[in-house]
Computed example of a mutant assay.
Amino acid sequence: MQPETSLRRRTPIFQTAWFMWFWLIVFPPFGILLMWRQGRFTKIKRIVATVIAIAYFAFPTIIVMTTTLPLYNNQKEFSDAFNKEVKDLDLSYSLENLKKEDDTITSKLDKDITLIENIDGNGAVHELIMVGQGEGTDIVLSMGLLIGMTNPELSQKEVGEVLKDLRLFDESYKYQRNETTVEKNAIRYNLKYDQSAGVIFSVSKVD
């Protein structure tokens, strides 16, 4: 008489607890599906685990979406980009008479054009604001300078197209009543006119 042998069925890998936990950590949506299909825990515990896993999965995306990236990580990076663009365009502009406060750095490009950098607590530059009251040519050159340095991959022709899209060359456009915004490669350019300040041109990252 042959001895009785017992056969043990091997549990499929997709039904094992470690496989479920692995995917709950690596890719929660698939881990949640496994948890419900395996029927582990009580229904209330599964619901709680599902909420926690979804929050864990979505948190990095929410942080990225709610965090506005700076134009420049620090003042040196900004100055290097500015000086490079000035050299490429053969302009005589320079950052002079810098006045630094808690959240702004104000400087003069020339006697009629002021540049304001909005910075955060770490010194990163989040917005550039040009205020111009000089001749039209100086204002156009300053705007082209800021577009070129914040979008260095654009050609001079493409920079001109951004200026055109801002309605800068449209003599019939009433800046006293309107403002224009153009987005190019995740950079937002805004142009408006204030009777007391003059032309106001701002540059920032798209949220």
Rank of each mutant, 00 (worst) to 15 (best):
N97W: 06
M20T: 13
K205F: 11
A53H: 07
G123F: 01
E96N: 10
T61P: 00
T50D: 03
E135C: 11
I44E: 04
R167V: 09
V162K: 04
L91F: 05
K174Y: 13
P60A: 03
K205V: 08
S172C: 08
A55L: 08
N178H: 15
T114K: 10
L163P: 02
F14I: 12
L71S: 03
K76C: 02
W21D: 05
E117Q: 11
K87E: 15
S142C: 10
T104V: 13
Y72S: 01
Q156Y: 14
D138M: 13
T67N: 02
M65D: 03
F19W: 15
S79R: 10
T106K: 07
L168Y: 14
A186T: 07
F14R: 14
Y189N: 03
S107A: 15
M20S: 02
F41G: 04
T16A: 03
T66E: 03
Q133R: 11
L91R: 07
L146I: 10
N190C: 11
I13K: 04
M143A: 07
V51L: 09
W18V: 08
L141I: 12
E135I: 08
F41A: 11
L115R: 07
T50R: 06
E153Q: 07
W36T: 06
N74P: 12
Y193H: 07
T180Y: 10
L95P: 00
I25A: 07
P60M: 08
T42Q: 05
G121F: 01
T42W: 06
G121E: 12
T5V: 14
L163C: 01
V26E: 00
